[in-house]
């Protein structure tokens, strides 16, 4: 499945411009996390990395479907 992933903050510095297109093996949030960390080991050095699907923080078991809006959420620092 081809996924377009929105990147913000430091994830843009690590991965490149947003949205980032990726051919995904498997279909869960956990699969996506594993793929991204393998391809971009610097992501593992962040304090946390969450994945949002359709504007909600997603659990690792969540199944990503074609057309879902997927975003990488590095540690937030608003305020």
């Amino acid at each position: 499945m081809e996924l377009k992933i929105l990147l913000f903050g430091i994830t843009k510095d690590i991965i490149g411009s947003s949205p980032h297109t990726l051919n995904m093996d498997g279909n869960t949030v956990a699969n996506l996390r594993r793929m991204l960390i393998e391809k971009y080991p610097k992501l593992a050095g962040l304090k946390s990395i969450l994945i949002a699907v359709n504007n909600e923080y997603a659990d690792e078991e969540l199944v990503i479907k074609e057309g879902d809006e997927v975003a990488l959420i590095p540690p937030v620092s608003g305020g």
Partner: peptide
């Protein structure tokens, strides 16, 4: 806000 809102500084 500082913990959950996707805003980066």
């Amino acid at each position: 806000l500082k913990n959950t809102v996707p805003i980066w500084k």
